[in-house]
Structures are given as structure tokens and as C-alpha cells.
Amino acid sequence: MIKLLLLLVPFLSFSQQKKSAKEALNELGPENSVLAKRAGLWNVTETVWEYPGAKAVVIKGMVAERVMIGLMLQEFIRPLKDTLHHDVRRTDLITFNQLESRWNYVSFDTRAPVGLMPAWGNVRGDGTKIDLNFAPFAVVADAADIKGQLMIMDQSFIFKDENSDVKDQYFMLADGKGTRWLGRRYSFVRIK
């Protein structure tokens, strides 16, 4: 009887340590661990090309505040002095959803009347880049008219090194022409 109990002790302690699926899916995992390393305060330079061939407009004086909320990295792009988030220009959330085995992302830009912009990425990647494809959304076609034009967008989030990142956003109007252009580039340099 004692031999039987001694044989069962390792099995019982192992079975008690086994995590539930819910617990395992709520751990960072390798993909979200990469995101956790991006938390902090970053200087942001935004470069905008409004249409293909447009002259670049460079916007400085903003910071990206990145915080982990559970498995999600949230980013607020705001003026440096706005620590209470009264003047957030853009915010986003990104996570690798282990249950779906894909990236989930949503952003909201207070400077444009486009609403929430959800996106997904189906490639885990190698920890240096995340590619996302957005659901089509409407943009104002002409400021004089209240009408829209569907826009197709994809984004590459590139981790250049531990202190610099780039988000490139490519746009294509759903006008049948198939012209894709780099419309926005956010360049990030870590402050702390």
C-alpha cells in the first residue's frame, strides 16, 4: 500500500499543477510578451501623405504612452504635457488572441470622423513585425459634401530595436483603380 501511495504522489502533484485552458490562454505567451516590452513613453513623429504623390507633412511634438492592460498593449498618442488624457489624438489596442491564433487590433483617431477601426493579422510573425488588415471604413470624400468614400487600409508595426518602432499605414481607395500608397508613418523613439 505504501508503494502505491509513493507512486501516486508525483502524479497527484502534477495533476494539481496543470492549468486550465482559460488560465493558459490568459498568460502573455510569446507574442504578447513582445508587446509587453514595448510599454513605456515614446516620442512620436507622424508623417502624412494625403494621396499618392502628395508632399509629406511632418507632425512632431507628440508622445505615445503605451501600457499593458492584461494581454493588450494600449497606446495613447497625445501631447507630452497631457498626462490626464484630455487631448488624446489617437488610441489603439493590440493583442495576440491565443484562442483565435491571430492578432486583434482596434484604433480610434479623434482627428478624423471614421469611428472605430478594427483590424486583424493572421501571421504570428517572428517578433519583429506585425501585419494587420483593417475592415474597410468610410472617409470624407470632399469637405464641401457630406459623403464618403470607402478606404482599404493595412498596417505594418515594425519593431526596429528595443528603443525604436515604426507603424506604416498603407491606404487604397475602393474606387476600382487599385492605387495603394503609404499614407501615414508613425516613427517612435523610446523616452523611458
Score class of each variant (00 low, 15 high):
Lys37Ala: 08
Glu27Gly: 07
Asn97Glu: 10
Asp109Phe: 04
Leu41Thr: 14
Tyr170Lys: 13
Leu35Tyr: 08
Arg66Glu: 03
Ser13Gln: 09
Val34Leu: 05
Ile146Val: 02
Lys167Tyr: 12
Lys81Thr: 09
Leu99Lys: 15
Leu132Cys: 07
Thr91Ser: 13
Leu35Phe: 07
Leu84Ser: 14
Phe96Trp: 14
Ala135Cys: 11
Phe188Trp: 02
Leu73Cys: 04
Thr45Gly: 07
Gly178Ala: 09
Asn32Leu: 03
Asp87His: 09
Lys22Val: 11
Lys160Asn: 11
Ile94Gln: 08
Thr128Asn: 01
Lys147Gln: 05
Gly121Val: 01
Leu4Trp: 08
Trp42Asn: 07
Leu25Cys: 13
Asp126Met: 00
Glu100Ala: 13
Val123His: 02
Asn26His: 14
Ala138Pro: 14
Pro118Arg: 08
Asp142Asn: 12
Ile152Val: 14
Lys55Ser: 13
Ala119Asp: 10
Trp120Thr: 13
Ser164Ile: 00
Leu173Val: 06
Phe11Asp: 10
Pro113Asp: 09
Leu41His: 12
Val44Asn: 02
Leu7Gln: 13
Ala64Tyr: 02
Leu73Glu: 09
Pro52Leu: 02
Pro79Asn: 09
Asp109Lys: 03
Thr128Tyr: 02
Val34His: 09
Tyr186Ile: 00
Pro113Gln: 05
Gly29Arg: 00
Val166Trp: 03
Gly121Trp: 02
Asp175Leu: 02
Ala174Asp: 15
Val88Trp: 04
Leu8His: 06
Ile158Thr: 11
Trp181Tyr: 09
Glu31His: 04
Gln169Lys: 05
Leu150Gln: 15
Ala138Glu: 14
Glu75Ser: 06
Asp131Thr: 06
Asp154Ser: 12
Val88Pro: 04
Met68Asp: 05
Arg102His: 14
Trp181Ala: 08
Ile59Glu: 10
His86Thr: 06
Ser164Thr: 07
Met72Trp: 14
Val106Ser: 11
Asp82Val: 00
Thr45Cys: 08
Pro113Thr: 06
Ser156Asp: 09
Val123Thr: 03
Val9Thr: 12
Leu150Thr: 14
Ile69Ser: 14
Val114Cys: 08
Lys37Ile: 00
Pro52Met: 04
Leu4Ala: 08
Tyr170Pro: 05
Ser20Trp: 09
Glu100Val: 02
Leu35Lys: 07
Thr110Gln: 10
Thr47Cys: 03
Ile69Cys: 11
Leu80Thr: 12
Met62Tyr: 15
Asn43Asp: 15
Ile77Ala: 03
Gly61His: 02
Pro30Met: 01
Tyr186Pro: 04
Phe134Ser: 10
Thr128Ala: 01
Gly183Tyr: 05
Arg38Gln: 09
Glu27Asp: 14
Thr91His: 13
Arg184Lys: 12
Ser20Tyr: 06
His86Tyr: 07
Ser156Val: 01
Leu7Ile: 08
Ile69Lys: 15
Gly125Asp: 00
Ser107Met: 05
Val67Ala: 02
Arg78Tyr: 11
Leu28Ser: 06
Glu75Lys: 00
Glu50Val: 10
Pro52Ile: 03
Gln74Ile: 12
Ala64Glu: 01
Ile2Asp: 06
Glu162Ala: 01
Leu182Ile: 05
Val48Glu: 09
Arg78Ala: 11
Val114Lys: 06
Val189Ser: 13
Glu31Val: 01
Tyr186Thr: 04
Pro52Ala: 06
Leu116Cys: 14
Phe157Asn: 07
Ile191Tyr: 05
Asp168Ala: 11
Ala174Arg: 12
